[in-house]
Amino acid sequence: MVVRFLLLAFLVFGFGLTRRVNSHEESGEWSCVSNSKEMHIQADFKPGIITLDGCADDWEDIDGSEFSLRPALDPDENHEYKDGKMTVKALHDGNSVFFLLQVDGNYVYSKGDIKKSPSVALMLQIGDNATYHNMGGCKEQKGSCTNKTCKGHEVDLMHFVIGNAIPGRLYGGGDSSFGPLVDAYAWNPHCRYLNGMGPSGNHSSGQNNWKGAWWHSSFADNSGCSVHN
């Protein structure tokens, strides 16, 4: 199934993708147990209603789920993002799955500077043993993680940096190593790679199956997007 992605706003997520992605180090022990029904997002079958242009209008009648935003390295509730929740919506048309991510709050953006622009990442479980915490949860370290030693811990990653991305333009697809929206895979935070790139012996087609666009309600509307207060 080809997965497509619609992005309307963004979660700041410091995550620079190159041929290999540098890992982060957590400040202490922490774990996440997500066996609650409240953690699940349902994608209903609604064909032919979503256009990948960054506009929110198509999603007005679709129910969403709200989630608190907390820093990845120190997810204490005292450090929660104060300006609002992240709303996530999903649906499918029998062939593609569509997501909307929307975050309230002040708009911060420096055109052309990926270190001063928001970005977003989505992670999907692929392997049966993959966990949310530790990005797949494989115990191997850099240099020893392969598709054999970490089998069953695979996760799929989509990463969208808007530093040079034009609002409303569709990005993604094709070669995963180029453009602001890339497709990656991982077994843990130390072992993250773009599709088609990675340790010797790993096989990937290298194609980016994600597509997405972004928009912000503070922009002057010249594209047909409705601006909602």
Rank of each mutant, 00 (worst) to 15 (best):
W210K: 06
W210I: 09
G206A: 08
H216F: 11
S205H: 09
W215I: 04
W214A: 04
S205W: 09
S200M: 14
G212W: 05
G212Y: 07
N202W: 13
L194D: 00
A186D: 02
D221M: 09
Y193M: 04
C191Y: 02
S200R: 15
Y185N: 01
H216C: 10
H203S: 08
H216S: 12
A213V: 11
N202E: 13
N202K: 13
M197K: 06
A220D: 11
G206V: 06
S217E: 04
S217W: 02
Y193P: 01
S217K: 04
Q207I: 12
L194G: 02
R192V: 02
S204N: 10
N209Q: 15
Y193I: 02
L194F: 05
D221V: 11
Y193L: 03
R192P: 00
N195D: 07
W187K: 00
W215L: 06
Y185S: 00
P189H: 04
A220G: 09
H190W: 13
H203F: 07
N208C: 13
N222C: 11
F219P: 08
Y193S: 02
H203G: 07
S205K: 09
G196H: 03
Y193R: 02
F219C: 12
Y185H: 02
Y185P: 00
S223L: 13
A220N: 10
S218E: 12
S223E: 15
S223Y: 15
N188F: 03
P189Y: 03
C191W: 01
W215S: 04
S204Q: 09
S223Q: 14
W210C: 07
Q207Y: 13
G201I: 06
C191M: 04
K211F: 13
P199S: 13
P199C: 12
K211V: 11
G224S: 10
G196P: 01
W210E: 10
